[in-house]
Design a protein around this nucleic acid. Structure first.
Lengths: 252, 252
DNA sequence: GTTGACTCTCACGTAGCGGCAGGCGGGAGC
DNA sequence: GCTCCCGCCTGCCGCTACGTGAGAGTCAAC
Protein backbone atom coordinates (compact mmCIF):
# COMPACT_ATOMS: atom_id res chain seq x y z
CA UNK A 1 0.00 0.00 0.00
CA UNK A 2 1.48 3.30 -1.10
CA UNK A 3 -0.08 6.69 -0.65
CA UNK A 4 0.56 10.13 -2.12
CA UNK A 5 1.03 13.23 0.04
CA UNK A 6 -2.52 14.31 -0.66
CA UNK A 7 -3.99 11.01 0.43
CA UNK A 8 -1.94 10.92 3.59
CA UNK A 9 -2.81 14.51 4.36
CA UNK A 10 -6.51 13.78 3.98
CA UNK A 11 -6.63 10.70 6.12
CA UNK A 12 -4.39 12.13 8.82
CA UNK A 13 -6.10 15.49 8.89
CA UNK A 14 -3.00 17.55 8.22
CA UNK A 15 -2.00 19.73 5.28
CA UNK A 16 0.32 18.78 2.47
CA UNK A 17 2.55 21.60 3.54
CA UNK A 18 2.92 20.01 6.94
CA UNK A 19 4.05 16.75 5.40
CA UNK A 20 6.53 18.64 3.27
CA UNK A 21 7.80 20.30 6.38
CA UNK A 22 8.17 17.01 8.22
CA UNK A 23 10.10 15.70 5.26
CA UNK A 24 12.35 18.76 5.22
CA UNK A 25 13.30 18.44 8.86
CA UNK A 26 13.65 14.68 8.63
CA UNK A 27 10.86 13.95 11.06
CA UNK A 28 8.90 11.93 8.54
CA UNK A 29 10.47 11.22 5.20
CA UNK A 30 8.43 9.06 2.84
CA UNK A 31 9.94 5.64 2.30
CA UNK A 32 10.22 6.27 -1.42
CA UNK A 33 9.71 8.50 -4.42
CA UNK A 34 8.27 7.85 -7.87
CA UNK A 35 10.41 8.38 -10.93
CA UNK A 36 8.88 11.81 -11.23
CA UNK A 37 9.90 12.72 -7.71
CA UNK A 38 6.47 12.25 -6.09
CA UNK A 39 6.58 11.27 -2.44
CA UNK A 40 5.32 7.75 -1.71
CA UNK A 41 4.25 6.91 1.82
CA UNK A 42 3.71 3.33 2.96
CA UNK A 43 1.99 1.85 6.00
CA UNK A 44 5.04 2.16 8.19
CA UNK A 45 5.19 5.86 7.33
CA UNK A 46 1.57 6.19 8.35
CA UNK A 47 2.27 4.53 11.68
CA UNK A 48 5.12 6.88 12.26
CA UNK A 49 2.96 9.85 11.33
CA UNK A 50 0.37 8.77 13.83
CA UNK A 51 3.00 8.72 16.56
CA UNK A 52 4.23 12.13 15.46
CA UNK A 53 0.74 13.61 15.59
CA UNK A 54 0.06 12.13 18.98
CA UNK A 55 3.16 13.59 20.52
CA UNK A 56 2.51 16.85 18.72
CA UNK A 57 -0.97 16.99 20.19
CA UNK A 58 0.64 16.51 23.56
CA UNK A 59 2.69 19.63 22.95
CA UNK A 60 6.12 18.22 22.23
CA UNK A 61 8.44 20.21 19.95
CA UNK A 62 9.09 18.40 16.69
CA UNK A 63 12.77 17.94 17.40
CA UNK A 64 11.98 16.16 20.63
CA UNK A 65 9.43 14.01 18.85
CA UNK A 66 12.14 12.92 16.46
CA UNK A 67 14.29 11.88 19.39
CA UNK A 68 11.46 10.05 21.13
CA UNK A 69 10.35 8.15 18.07
CA UNK A 70 13.83 7.28 16.89
CA UNK A 71 14.77 5.96 20.29
CA UNK A 72 15.72 2.36 19.55
CA UNK A 73 15.03 1.32 23.13
CA UNK A 74 11.34 2.09 22.88
CA UNK A 75 8.84 -0.44 21.66
CA UNK A 76 5.28 0.36 20.56
CA UNK A 77 3.82 -0.59 23.93
CA UNK A 78 6.17 1.84 25.64
CA UNK A 79 4.94 4.63 23.38
CA UNK A 80 1.36 3.90 24.21
CA UNK A 81 2.04 3.73 27.92
CA UNK A 82 3.92 7.00 27.73
CA UNK A 83 1.11 8.68 25.88
CA UNK A 84 -1.36 7.36 28.39
CA UNK A 85 0.68 8.77 31.25
CA UNK A 86 1.04 12.13 29.57
CA UNK A 87 -2.65 12.27 28.86
CA UNK A 88 -3.65 11.51 32.41
CA UNK A 89 -1.32 14.23 33.66
CA UNK A 90 -2.97 16.65 31.27
CA UNK A 91 -6.35 15.47 32.31
CA UNK A 92 -5.53 16.15 35.93
CA UNK A 93 -4.27 19.59 35.05
CA UNK A 94 -7.43 20.42 33.13
CA UNK A 95 -9.58 19.20 35.97
CA UNK A 96 -7.66 21.47 38.30
CA UNK A 97 -8.33 24.34 35.98
CA UNK A 98 -12.01 23.53 35.92
CA UNK A 99 -12.03 23.46 39.70
CA UNK A 100 -10.19 26.76 39.80
CA UNK A 101 -12.70 28.30 37.42
CA UNK A 102 -15.57 27.04 39.49
CA UNK A 103 -13.91 28.48 42.53
CA UNK A 104 -13.51 31.81 40.77
CA UNK A 105 -17.12 31.73 39.64
CA UNK A 106 -18.32 31.17 43.16
CA UNK A 107 -16.07 33.91 44.41
CA UNK A 108 -17.25 36.40 41.84
CA UNK A 109 -20.83 35.47 42.61
CA UNK A 110 -20.31 36.43 46.20
CA UNK A 111 -18.26 39.50 45.54
CA UNK A 112 -15.20 37.93 47.05
CA UNK A 113 -12.10 39.25 45.38
CA UNK A 114 -9.17 36.95 44.97
CA UNK A 115 -5.65 37.90 45.90
CA UNK A 116 -3.17 38.29 43.05
CA UNK A 117 -1.54 34.98 43.97
CA UNK A 118 -4.79 33.14 44.05
CA UNK A 119 -5.67 34.35 40.64
CA UNK A 120 -2.49 32.95 39.17
CA UNK A 121 -2.13 29.87 41.29
CA UNK A 122 -3.60 27.65 38.65
CA UNK A 123 -0.88 28.62 36.19
CA UNK A 124 2.22 28.39 38.29
CA UNK A 125 3.35 25.36 40.16
CA UNK A 126 5.33 27.20 42.78
CA UNK A 127 5.59 25.81 46.27
CA UNK A 128 2.75 27.28 48.33
CA UNK A 129 4.72 26.85 51.55
CA UNK A 130 7.67 29.13 51.17
CA UNK A 131 5.69 31.29 48.82
CA UNK A 132 3.29 32.28 51.55
CA UNK A 133 5.76 34.21 53.67
CA UNK A 134 7.24 35.92 50.66
CA UNK A 135 3.82 36.93 49.47
CA UNK A 136 2.72 38.36 52.79
CA UNK A 137 5.75 40.57 52.83
CA UNK A 138 5.50 41.59 49.24
CA UNK A 139 1.82 42.30 48.97
CA UNK A 140 1.22 43.41 52.52
CA UNK A 141 -1.31 42.11 54.96
CA UNK A 142 -3.53 39.92 52.89
CA UNK A 143 -6.53 40.00 55.20
CA UNK A 144 -6.75 43.76 55.08
CA UNK A 145 -6.19 43.62 51.36
CA UNK A 146 -9.00 41.18 50.89
CA UNK A 147 -11.25 43.20 53.14
CA UNK A 148 -10.76 46.37 51.16
CA UNK A 149 -11.29 44.49 47.93
CA UNK A 150 -14.41 42.89 49.20
CA UNK A 151 -15.97 46.30 49.66
CA UNK A 152 -14.74 47.70 46.40
CA UNK A 153 -15.76 44.91 44.07
CA UNK A 154 -19.05 45.47 42.35
CA UNK A 155 -20.95 44.43 39.26
CA UNK A 156 -23.17 46.82 37.41
CA UNK A 157 -24.97 44.75 34.76
CA UNK A 158 -28.71 44.54 35.18
CA UNK A 159 -28.92 40.80 34.81
CA UNK A 160 -26.45 40.63 37.59
CA UNK A 161 -28.88 42.67 39.66
CA UNK A 162 -31.70 40.28 38.90
CA UNK A 163 -29.48 37.39 39.80
CA UNK A 164 -28.57 39.11 43.00
CA UNK A 165 -32.21 39.64 43.83
CA UNK A 166 -33.00 35.99 43.25
CA UNK A 167 -30.02 35.05 45.29
CA UNK A 168 -31.09 37.19 48.20
CA UNK A 169 -34.61 35.89 48.01
CA UNK A 170 -33.24 32.38 48.21
CA UNK A 171 -31.04 33.42 51.12
CA UNK A 172 -33.99 34.80 53.06
CA UNK A 173 -35.95 31.59 52.65
CA UNK A 174 -32.95 29.51 53.60
CA UNK A 175 -32.47 31.51 56.78
CA UNK A 176 -36.17 31.21 57.53
CA UNK A 177 -36.10 27.43 57.23
CA UNK A 178 -33.04 27.20 59.42
CA UNK A 179 -34.63 29.52 61.99
CA UNK A 180 -37.81 27.40 62.01
CA UNK A 181 -35.80 24.64 63.61
CA UNK A 182 -36.14 22.23 60.69
CA UNK A 183 -33.15 19.94 60.42
CA UNK A 184 -30.74 20.27 57.51
CA UNK A 185 -32.02 17.05 55.99
CA UNK A 186 -35.66 18.07 56.20
CA UNK A 187 -37.59 18.28 52.92
CA UNK A 188 -37.73 22.09 53.18
CA UNK A 189 -33.98 22.48 53.59
CA UNK A 190 -33.24 19.97 50.87
CA UNK A 191 -35.61 21.73 48.52
CA UNK A 192 -33.72 24.95 49.07
CA UNK A 193 -30.43 23.15 48.50
CA UNK A 194 -31.87 21.99 45.20
CA UNK A 195 -32.83 25.57 44.37
CA UNK A 196 -29.31 26.64 45.18
CA UNK A 197 -28.04 24.22 42.57
CA UNK A 198 -30.56 25.39 40.02
CA UNK A 199 -29.74 29.02 40.67
CA UNK A 200 -26.12 28.31 39.83
CA UNK A 201 -27.11 26.30 36.79
CA UNK A 202 -29.35 29.07 35.55
CA UNK A 203 -27.00 31.96 36.17
CA UNK A 204 -23.57 30.53 35.93
CA UNK A 205 -22.92 27.02 34.71
CA UNK A 206 -24.36 23.54 34.64
CA UNK A 207 -23.96 22.48 38.24
CA UNK A 208 -24.14 18.75 38.88
CA UNK A 209 -24.79 17.29 42.33
CA UNK A 210 -21.18 16.29 42.47
CA UNK A 211 -20.04 19.82 41.74
CA UNK A 212 -22.49 21.23 44.21
CA UNK A 213 -21.22 19.06 47.05
CA UNK A 214 -17.75 20.21 46.06
CA UNK A 215 -18.91 23.79 46.48
CA UNK A 216 -20.51 22.92 49.80
CA UNK A 217 -17.20 21.54 51.04
CA UNK A 218 -15.49 24.69 49.87
CA UNK A 219 -17.96 26.82 51.82
CA UNK A 220 -16.67 25.20 54.99
CA UNK A 221 -13.02 24.85 54.02
CA UNK A 222 -12.38 28.38 52.80
CA UNK A 223 -12.85 30.98 55.49
CA UNK A 224 -13.94 33.62 53.05
CA UNK A 225 -16.88 31.61 51.88
CA UNK A 226 -17.69 30.67 55.43
CA UNK A 227 -17.63 34.32 56.36
CA UNK A 228 -19.95 35.15 53.51
CA UNK A 229 -22.61 32.80 54.84
CA UNK A 230 -21.99 33.52 58.50
CA UNK A 231 -22.58 37.18 57.76
CA UNK A 232 -26.04 36.28 56.56
CA UNK A 233 -26.86 34.08 59.54
CA UNK A 234 -24.84 32.28 62.16
CA UNK A 235 -24.48 28.61 61.39
CA UNK A 236 -25.71 29.00 57.84
CA UNK A 237 -22.51 27.72 56.24
CA UNK A 238 -22.66 24.41 58.09
CA UNK A 239 -26.42 24.16 57.70
CA UNK A 240 -26.23 24.69 53.94
CA UNK A 241 -23.34 22.28 53.69
CA UNK A 242 -25.37 19.57 55.34
CA UNK A 243 -28.51 20.30 53.36
CA UNK A 244 -26.63 20.13 50.06
CA UNK A 245 -25.07 16.82 50.95
CA UNK A 246 -28.38 15.39 52.16
CA UNK A 247 -30.10 16.53 48.99
CA UNK A 248 -27.38 15.15 46.75
CA UNK A 249 -27.54 11.76 48.45
CA UNK A 250 -31.31 11.57 48.23
CA UNK A 251 -31.22 12.38 44.50
CA UNK A 252 -28.52 9.89 43.67
CA UNK B 1 -0.96 48.57 44.72
CA UNK B 2 1.57 48.94 41.92
CA UNK B 3 3.89 46.27 40.64
CA UNK B 4 6.98 46.25 38.42
CA UNK B 5 7.35 43.96 35.40
CA UNK B 6 9.55 41.61 37.35
CA UNK B 7 7.06 41.26 40.16
CA UNK B 8 4.18 40.67 37.81
CA UNK B 9 6.21 38.18 35.82
CA UNK B 10 7.08 36.26 38.95
CA UNK B 11 3.60 36.02 40.35
CA UNK B 12 2.00 35.25 37.02
CA UNK B 13 4.60 32.75 35.97
CA UNK B 14 5.53 34.43 32.72
CA UNK B 15 8.73 36.10 31.52
CA UNK B 16 9.41 39.81 31.48
CA UNK B 17 9.80 39.54 27.74
CA UNK B 18 6.27 38.24 27.47
CA UNK B 19 4.93 41.25 29.32
CA UNK B 20 6.96 43.53 27.08
CA UNK B 21 5.47 41.75 24.11
CA UNK B 22 1.93 42.13 25.40
CA UNK B 23 2.61 45.80 25.89
CA UNK B 24 3.96 46.14 22.35
CA UNK B 25 0.93 44.59 20.73
CA UNK B 26 -1.45 46.42 23.01
CA UNK B 27 -2.81 43.31 24.66
CA UNK B 28 -1.79 44.38 28.11
CA UNK B 29 -0.34 47.83 28.57
CA UNK B 30 0.51 48.81 32.11
CA UNK B 31 -1.73 51.50 33.48
CA UNK B 32 1.23 53.78 34.08
CA UNK B 33 4.94 54.44 33.95
CA UNK B 34 7.36 55.90 36.44
CA UNK B 35 9.30 59.05 35.62
CA UNK B 36 12.18 56.83 34.56
CA UNK B 37 9.98 54.96 32.12
CA UNK B 38 9.50 51.84 34.24
CA UNK B 39 6.22 50.01 33.67
CA UNK B 40 3.78 50.12 36.57
CA UNK B 41 1.04 47.50 36.74
CA UNK B 42 -1.91 47.86 39.06
CA UNK B 43 -4.53 45.37 40.25
CA UNK B 44 -6.75 45.90 37.23
CA UNK B 45 -3.79 45.07 35.00
CA UNK B 46 -3.27 41.88 36.95
CA UNK B 47 -6.88 40.91 36.50
CA UNK B 48 -6.59 41.50 32.81
CA UNK B 49 -3.39 39.49 32.66
CA UNK B 50 -5.11 36.62 34.36
CA UNK B 51 -7.82 36.64 31.72
CA UNK B 52 -5.19 36.79 29.01
CA UNK B 53 -3.34 33.80 30.41
CA UNK B 54 -6.48 31.80 30.78
CA UNK B 55 -7.51 32.31 27.20
CA UNK B 56 -3.96 31.73 26.09
CA UNK B 57 -3.89 28.43 27.93
CA UNK B 58 -7.05 27.55 26.09
CA UNK B 59 -5.17 28.05 22.83
CA UNK B 60 -6.55 31.35 21.61
CA UNK B 61 -4.29 33.55 19.46
CA UNK B 62 -3.35 36.77 21.18
CA UNK B 63 -5.23 38.93 18.71
CA UNK B 64 -8.43 37.06 19.39
CA UNK B 65 -7.83 37.35 23.11
CA UNK B 66 -7.63 41.11 22.70
CA UNK B 67 -10.99 41.07 20.95
CA UNK B 68 -12.59 38.81 23.55
CA UNK B 69 -11.35 40.77 26.52
CA UNK B 70 -12.09 44.18 25.06
CA UNK B 71 -15.61 43.14 24.17
CA UNK B 72 -17.73 45.67 26.08
CA UNK B 73 -20.70 43.29 26.07
CA UNK B 74 -18.91 40.75 28.21
CA UNK B 75 -18.96 40.94 31.99
CA UNK B 76 -16.64 38.99 34.27
CA UNK B 77 -19.22 36.28 34.89
CA UNK B 78 -19.55 35.73 31.16
CA UNK B 79 -15.80 35.25 30.87
CA UNK B 80 -15.82 32.68 33.60
CA UNK B 81 -18.74 30.83 32.11
CA UNK B 82 -17.07 30.85 28.73
CA UNK B 83 -13.85 29.52 30.15
CA UNK B 84 -15.75 26.85 31.99
CA UNK B 85 -17.44 25.76 28.79
CA UNK B 86 -14.21 25.72 26.84
CA UNK B 87 -12.53 23.73 29.55
CA UNK B 88 -15.21 21.10 29.69
CA UNK B 89 -15.03 20.71 25.91
CA UNK B 90 -11.30 20.21 26.22
CA UNK B 91 -11.78 17.81 29.03
CA UNK B 92 -14.11 15.74 26.94
CA UNK B 93 -11.65 15.73 24.08
CA UNK B 94 -8.83 14.60 26.32
CA UNK B 95 -10.96 11.86 27.78
CA UNK B 96 -11.69 10.66 24.27
CA UNK B 97 -7.99 10.58 23.57
CA UNK B 98 -7.38 8.58 26.71
CA UNK B 99 -10.06 6.14 25.64
CA UNK B 100 -8.52 5.92 22.19
CA UNK B 101 -5.12 5.23 23.68
CA UNK B 102 -6.55 2.54 25.90
CA UNK B 103 -8.23 1.05 22.87
CA UNK B 104 -4.94 1.09 21.01
CA UNK B 105 -3.14 -0.46 23.97
CA UNK B 106 -5.63 -3.28 24.14
CA UNK B 107 -5.39 -3.75 20.41
CA UNK B 108 -1.62 -3.90 20.42
CA UNK B 109 -1.75 -6.31 23.33
CA UNK B 110 -3.79 -8.70 21.29
CA UNK B 111 -1.89 -8.22 18.07
CA UNK B 112 -4.85 -6.57 16.42
CA UNK B 113 -3.64 -4.07 13.87
CA UNK B 114 -5.67 -0.95 13.33
CA UNK B 115 -6.64 0.34 9.93
CA UNK B 116 -5.08 3.61 8.82
CA UNK B 117 -8.35 5.42 9.43
CA UNK B 118 -8.74 4.05 12.89
CA UNK B 119 -5.31 5.19 13.82
CA UNK B 120 -6.13 8.74 12.91
CA UNK B 121 -9.73 8.81 13.99
CA UNK B 122 -8.91 10.45 17.26
CA UNK B 123 -7.42 13.43 15.47
CA UNK B 124 -9.94 14.14 12.78
CA UNK B 125 -13.58 14.76 13.35
CA UNK B 126 -14.74 13.57 9.97
CA UNK B 127 -18.10 11.93 9.58
CA UNK B 128 -17.63 8.18 9.97
CA UNK B 129 -20.73 7.46 7.88
CA UNK B 130 -19.89 8.75 4.46
CA UNK B 131 -16.25 8.22 5.18
CA UNK B 132 -16.71 4.47 5.40
CA UNK B 133 -17.62 3.93 1.76
CA UNK B 134 -14.87 6.20 0.57
CA UNK B 135 -12.34 4.39 2.69
CA UNK B 136 -13.36 0.91 1.53
CA UNK B 137 -12.85 1.97 -2.02
CA UNK B 138 -9.65 3.79 -1.40
CA UNK B 139 -7.88 1.34 0.82
CA UNK B 140 -9.34 -1.85 -0.54
CA UNK B 141 -11.15 -4.57 1.32
CA UNK B 142 -10.57 -3.71 4.94
CA UNK B 143 -11.25 -7.17 6.33
CA UNK B 144 -8.58 -8.76 4.20
CA UNK B 145 -6.30 -5.91 5.04
CA UNK B 146 -6.84 -6.42 8.72
CA UNK B 147 -6.43 -10.14 8.39
CA UNK B 148 -3.10 -9.83 6.68
CA UNK B 149 -1.94 -7.30 9.20
CA UNK B 150 -3.05 -9.46 12.04
CA UNK B 151 -0.73 -12.18 10.89
CA UNK B 152 2.12 -9.87 10.15
CA UNK B 153 2.16 -7.88 13.35
CA UNK B 154 4.66 -9.13 15.87
CA UNK B 155 6.64 -7.97 18.84
CA UNK B 156 10.11 -9.21 19.44
CA UNK B 157 11.08 -7.87 22.88
CA UNK B 158 11.63 -10.48 25.50
CA UNK B 159 9.48 -8.80 28.12
CA UNK B 160 6.72 -8.93 25.60
CA UNK B 161 7.24 -12.67 25.42
CA UNK B 162 7.02 -12.99 29.19
CA UNK B 163 3.88 -10.91 29.15
CA UNK B 164 2.45 -13.11 26.45
CA UNK B 165 3.22 -16.21 28.48
CA UNK B 166 1.51 -14.80 31.55
CA UNK B 167 -1.40 -13.79 29.41
CA UNK B 168 -1.78 -17.25 27.96
CA UNK B 169 -1.47 -18.84 31.36
CA UNK B 170 -4.28 -16.57 32.57
CA UNK B 171 -6.33 -17.47 29.48
CA UNK B 172 -5.95 -21.18 30.13
CA UNK B 173 -7.15 -20.81 33.70
CA UNK B 174 -10.03 -18.60 32.60
CA UNK B 175 -11.15 -21.18 30.07
CA UNK B 176 -10.86 -23.92 32.68
CA UNK B 177 -13.06 -22.05 35.11
CA UNK B 178 -15.64 -21.41 32.44
CA UNK B 179 -15.54 -25.04 31.33
CA UNK B 180 -16.00 -26.17 34.94
CA UNK B 181 -19.49 -24.74 34.77
CA UNK B 182 -18.87 -22.08 37.43
CA UNK B 183 -21.00 -18.99 36.83
CA UNK B 184 -19.37 -15.74 35.75
CA UNK B 185 -20.00 -14.21 39.16
CA UNK B 186 -18.47 -17.13 41.03
CA UNK B 187 -15.47 -16.36 43.24
CA UNK B 188 -13.15 -18.22 40.85
CA UNK B 189 -14.25 -16.27 37.79
CA UNK B 190 -14.13 -12.98 39.66
CA UNK B 191 -10.66 -13.76 40.93
CA UNK B 192 -9.51 -14.27 37.37
CA UNK B 193 -11.20 -11.04 36.33
CA UNK B 194 -9.19 -9.36 39.06
CA UNK B 195 -6.03 -10.97 37.73
CA UNK B 196 -6.91 -9.67 34.28
CA UNK B 197 -6.97 -6.17 35.69
CA UNK B 198 -3.69 -6.65 37.50
CA UNK B 199 -2.05 -8.07 34.40
CA UNK B 200 -2.93 -4.92 32.52
CA UNK B 201 -1.79 -2.75 35.39
CA UNK B 202 1.52 -4.55 35.60
CA UNK B 203 2.28 -4.65 31.90
CA UNK B 204 0.53 -1.68 30.40
CA UNK B 205 -1.05 0.97 32.53
CA UNK B 206 -2.81 1.57 35.80
CA UNK B 207 -6.16 -0.03 35.16
CA UNK B 208 -8.98 1.03 37.47
CA UNK B 209 -12.18 -0.97 37.85
CA UNK B 210 -13.95 1.67 35.84
CA UNK B 211 -11.48 1.36 33.02
CA UNK B 212 -11.63 -2.39 33.15
CA UNK B 213 -15.41 -2.46 32.78
CA UNK B 214 -14.96 -0.10 29.85
CA UNK B 215 -12.61 -2.62 28.29
CA UNK B 216 -15.07 -5.42 29.00
CA UNK B 217 -17.77 -3.52 27.16
CA UNK B 218 -15.40 -3.01 24.28
CA UNK B 219 -14.70 -6.74 24.12
CA UNK B 220 -18.34 -7.23 23.29
CA UNK B 221 -18.92 -4.13 21.18
CA UNK B 222 -15.96 -4.43 18.85
CA UNK B 223 -16.06 -7.55 16.73
CA UNK B 224 -12.31 -7.79 16.53
CA UNK B 225 -11.96 -8.09 20.27
CA UNK B 226 -14.87 -10.48 20.41
CA UNK B 227 -13.20 -12.60 17.76
CA UNK B 228 -9.98 -12.61 19.75
CA UNK B 229 -11.69 -14.17 22.75
CA UNK B 230 -14.01 -16.42 20.77
CA UNK B 231 -10.97 -17.89 19.07
CA UNK B 232 -9.72 -18.95 22.48
CA UNK B 233 -13.02 -20.45 23.58
CA UNK B 234 -16.61 -20.05 22.53
CA UNK B 235 -18.55 -17.78 24.84
CA UNK B 236 -15.39 -16.45 26.51
CA UNK B 237 -15.99 -12.83 25.49
CA UNK B 238 -19.40 -12.71 27.16
CA UNK B 239 -18.22 -14.74 30.14
CA UNK B 240 -15.25 -12.47 30.76
CA UNK B 241 -17.45 -9.43 30.29
CA UNK B 242 -19.81 -10.61 32.98
CA UNK B 243 -17.03 -11.68 35.34
CA UNK B 244 -15.32 -8.30 35.07
CA UNK B 245 -18.53 -6.44 35.80
CA UNK B 246 -19.37 -8.72 38.73
CA UNK B 247 -15.90 -8.28 40.16
CA UNK B 248 -15.97 -4.51 39.75
CA UNK B 249 -19.31 -4.26 41.52
CA UNK B 250 -18.21 -6.44 44.41
CA UNK B 251 -15.06 -4.35 44.93
CA UNK B 252 -16.84 -1.01 44.80
C1' DG C 1 29.45 56.51 45.64
C1' DT C 2 29.88 52.21 44.16
C1' DT C 3 27.93 47.76 43.46
C1' DG C 4 24.51 44.58 41.82
C1' DA C 5 20.02 43.63 40.66
C1' DC C 6 16.55 45.46 37.82
C1' DT C 7 14.78 48.11 34.01
C1' DC C 8 14.59 50.21 29.39
C1' DT C 9 14.64 49.95 24.04
C1' DC C 10 16.15 48.15 19.76
C1' DA C 11 16.87 44.21 17.07
C1' DC C 12 17.71 39.80 15.31
C1' DG C 13 16.63 34.58 15.85
C1' DT C 14 13.47 30.55 16.16
C1' DA C 15 9.57 27.04 15.55
C1' DG C 16 5.97 25.37 12.88
C1' DC C 17 4.01 25.91 9.63
C1' DG C 18 0.64 29.01 5.75
C1' DG C 19 0.55 30.53 1.31
C1' DC C 20 1.97 31.75 -3.15
C1' DA C 21 4.79 31.48 -7.44
C1' DG C 22 6.49 29.03 -11.25
C1' DG C 23 6.97 24.71 -13.32
C1' DC C 24 6.35 19.60 -14.16
C1' DG C 25 3.41 15.06 -14.33
C1' DG C 26 -0.62 12.30 -15.37
C1' DG C 27 -4.81 10.63 -16.80
C1' DA C 28 -9.45 11.78 -18.80
C1' DG C 29 -11.84 13.46 -22.63
C1' DC C 30 -11.86 14.97 -27.46
C1' DG D 1 -1.96 13.38 -30.30
C1' DC D 2 -3.62 17.45 -27.90
C1' DT D 3 -5.58 19.82 -24.35
C1' DC D 4 -7.24 20.55 -19.78
C1' DC D 5 -7.19 20.38 -15.09
C1' DC D 6 -5.76 18.65 -10.96
C1' DG D 7 -2.11 17.23 -8.09
C1' DC D 8 2.72 17.28 -7.24
C1' DC D 9 7.29 19.52 -6.99
C1' DT D 10 10.75 23.16 -5.03
C1' DG D 11 11.84 27.57 -3.42
C1' DC D 12 10.83 31.47 -0.64
C1' DC D 13 8.68 35.03 2.02
C1' DG D 14 5.42 35.82 6.03
C1' DC D 15 3.41 35.09 10.43
C1' DT D 16 2.95 34.30 15.65
C1' DA D 17 4.70 34.40 20.14
C1' DC D 18 7.94 35.01 22.03
C1' DG D 19 13.78 33.92 23.32
C1' DT D 20 17.98 36.05 23.62
C1' DG D 21 21.32 39.10 23.85
C1' DA D 22 23.38 44.20 23.44
C1' DG D 23 24.04 48.48 25.30
C1' DA D 24 22.51 51.87 28.44
C1' DG D 25 19.98 53.93 32.26
C1' DT D 26 17.93 53.25 37.33
C1' DC D 27 17.20 51.98 42.05
C1' DA D 28 18.24 50.62 46.66
C1' DA D 29 21.48 49.07 49.78
C1' DC D 30 25.86 49.16 51.90
Amino acid sequence: MAYTVGQVAKVAGVTVRTLHHYDEIGLLSPSGRTSAGYRRYDDADLQRLQLVLYYRELGFPLEEITAIIDDPAADPAAHLRRQHDLLTVRLKRLQEMVTAIEFAMEASKMNIQLTPEERFEVFGDFDPEEHQAEAEQRWGDTDAYRESNRRVARYSKEDWLRNKAENEEWGRRMVAVMASGASADSPEAMELAEEHRQLISRWFYECSYEMQTGLADMYLADERFTAYFENIAEGLAAYLHEAIHANAISRA
